[in-house]
Design a protein around this nucleic acid. Sequence first.
DNA 1: GAGATCGTGTTGAATAACTGCATGGTTGAT
DNA 2: ATCAACCATGCAGTTATTCAACACGATCTC
Lengths: 305, 305
Amino acid sequence: MVDLGLLQTFRVLEEQGTVTAAAHALNLSPSAVSQQLRQLSRQAGAALLEPDGRRLRLTVAGRVLLGHADVLCAQWETARAELAQHGAPARRTLRLAGFATSIGPLLAPVAGTLARAGEPIQAIVTETDTRNSYQQLLAEGFDIAVLTPLSDSPPTDDARFHQEHLLDDVLDLVVPADHALAARGTVDLAATERATWISPHHDQGRLIHALCTAAGFAPHTVHHADDWQAVLALVRHGLGVCLVPRLVSLDAHPGLVRVPLAGSPPPSRRILTCVRRGSSGEPAIAAALTALRERAGQVSAARVG
Amino acid sequence: MVDLGLLQTFRVLEEQGTVTAAAHALNLSPSAVSQQLRQLSRQAGAALLEPDGRRLRLTVAGRVLLGHADVLCAQWETARAELAQHGAPARRTLRLAGFATSIGPLLAPVAGTLARAGEPIQAIVTETDTRNSYQQLLAEGFDIAVLTPLSDSPPTDDARFHQEHLLDDVLDLVVPADHALAARGTVDLAATERATWISPHHDQGRLIHALCTAAGFAPHTVHHADDWQAVLALVRHGLGVCLVPRLVSLDAHPGLVRVPLAGSPPPSRRILTCVRRGSSGEPAIAAALTALRERAGQVSAARVG
DNA sequence: GAGATCGTGTTGAATAACTGCATGGTTGAT
DNA sequence: ATCAACCATGCAGTTATTCAACACGATCTC
């Protein structure tokens, strides 16, 4: 019979695109992955992959198997979750992942809450971007991810994941206090058409570009920085403006002001929790998700008040 | 991750009742099965079994896992079946099992038909009883079984199997030609209350006992024989009567006559096909099932005419 | 209480799995 | 056109796992 580990390798291969990348994600050598795939192909009784240049492409049979692999792995996760409810509560290390700005307001408080609540959970928090969150979640490197979905992210009903809306992180225009727009109560995005922009790190930059495009102009981006504090420093020196989510604190930059964007609801980035499908029932994961939701509620309430 | 083989072992253990029996059914040593179960328990993260005298009993967690194991294995069978439809048609050895009387009219003709039809199938026919059919089907010793369900057989909606009605094998009272009931057009079962009975082999004997009980009397069984030809020989020598399904030929016993039983439909034994759930879509299995249904139709039509 | 049955440790051999390296093929830039 | 980087895969060699055989303690039956 088949080892679900082989199916898992197969799924990671599809997600990563190459044997080498899959091997890296699984902490294996490319050779091992290659052999596992051959064995899977033998046990499935069909060719799953075919050479495509210097990489591999899934055959029709491979794509068929992939669908079943998702179902099988989810079913196994469900089984594990249900078993964990019936057995003795064992100590569990939960690996939480999130984008940089989510750690301070969300993941760190939740990890602390879980520890104080006496849950038999040891939380490990890691910072990553959206893409890696999905990949490592699939490769079982993380158990829970807090992320902002991108246009190429798996859809909410993806068979491999279980994703839930956590909160909407509202975006404000951030400008120096002496900026022409600083005194406004709200500002329309179109009013910034002539402004120069600071482009934040990759994930967020794409969102800003999409919003400006929707508002009818292409943002004139000059400077670029991955770190929000660097972005804010650039804004503070009058080098441009930027849209900054409210999870990013401006406390370190007294010379800057947030100008809310017009619209109801105002433009925001959606923040989701994501776990492997089937695993959301596991006690440790369920507890962490609940704590995350609760914390997200507090954050939202604080912003409103 | 988990090997489905371990879940398979776990399922066979449940079906067989003891580690030793499961090991025998899987062609393994009891020690190997014991170790596999330990590994499964470790990977499931819960105790699945607990000692119960000199045998094992499933824990609550074990019973939970068992349900998931059935689903997982069926899902894998489905995947295999669907893959076999997309890949190149490979040579396949199909292992068919059936009770003794089913082989002549059903399994042997079907095996011949499949061979002549040019299907890439090598059929292997084995005779067994109902209980072993289910067990070997689960242990992957057989692929298709033709059987008569008993009171302790898995129900039709059992998660592990896919069972289909094949035909109803009508039962007749068989008596010597000079018997008092021989000349009747039909006979009510109650009319045989004072007769002495020949008890056929175990499976069939239970059915006869149940029918007589339903008719209001306990059959007075004197002789016993597993083989139908032996039963008929006993009847021929005036030692008793018996209910004999029509699949059993009386050709070798000119001195005997069938007296149809009253009732519409008349008493009969249900004959089912049984395969592992999910496997019925596999081309080879689907072809064999179709051939079986067709052959069963011919048999039924011949009996009617 | 003797004998049979059952589950499970242990041990050694066979098997399988993984790493590291080498090879052949492919892509893309110089 | 050439070269370097990249990728999948085949081939040892090593490591880890799996299984059968036997032994042992526990349990049930007669």
